[in-house]
């Protein structure tokens, strides 16, 4: 079961669409588990939010084994800088764990036209699949059409597909099959 917890207000229709897409991608039930307040302990001085702390400290519903919790936030997430600098943070997930967060801050503007809403939803769904994929121990994929391709890659299409490539899909199915429940 994937439980979606929002840390900012989102349109119910968008969340319903997201739930359907996640079900299609992973074959797992999806539940909209309500809205919570973002934890103050994760806030950084510059107005940014520590992604790792946010995932650890955010309140979540009760879960059973192998449930995954996806937080949707509007905050500007920050990751610890690496040897070559800080990579752009579209989200964060506990690899092989149970919690992930996706930020909608870097998504294109939602707008109000049908096309812009569709593009926004697809990009949101793609990022959610990406970070839930990390929860199922998927690594980044070199295929730009795969949802596991890095979110900042210049090879990514303007409106990327919200689906996994064959290799990643089979790997995720294998992991899900081997899960405890």
């Amino acid at each position: 079961m994937i439980r979606i917890v929002t840390l900012a207000p989102y349109d119910a229709a968008d969340l319903a669409w997201l739930g359907k897409t996640l079900y299609t991608a992973f074959g797992l039930g999806t539940e909209i588990a309500g809205e919570r307040r973002p934890p103050a302990s994760a806030e950084l001085p510059g107005g940014r939010t520590d992604a790792e702390k946010l995932v650890q400290a955010a309140g979540a519903p009760r879960v059973v084994a192998d449930d995954k919790i996806l937080f949707l936030a509007a905050a500007d997430l920050a990751l610890p800088p690496g040897p070559l600098g800080e990579p752009p943070a579209w989200g964060f997930s506990q690899q092989g764990g149970e919690r992930a967060v996706v930020s909608t801050r870097r998504l294109p503007a939602r707008g109000s036209t049908e096309a812009s809403v569709e593009a926004w939803r697809r990009r949101l769904a793609r990022e959610c699949i990406h970070f839930i994929g990390h929860l199922w121990e998927l690594h980044h994929c070199y295929d730009p059409r795969c949802a596991m391709h890095p979110s900042w890659s210049p090879d990514l299409a303007p409106i990327p597909d919200a689906a996994l490539c064959n290799f990643c899909r089979e790997k995720s199915e294998r992991k899900i099959r081997l899960a405890k429940t």
């Binding site: 990751l79 610890p80 070559l84 964060f92 690899q95 990390h134 890095p150 900042w152 210049p154």
Partner: peptide, 17 residues
Amino acid sequence: VPPSVAEDYVDYALMPP
């Protein structure tokens, strides 16, 4: 660092924005 962040570092180097 967490593994997902380490992977971001790797791909940031391999495929910079």
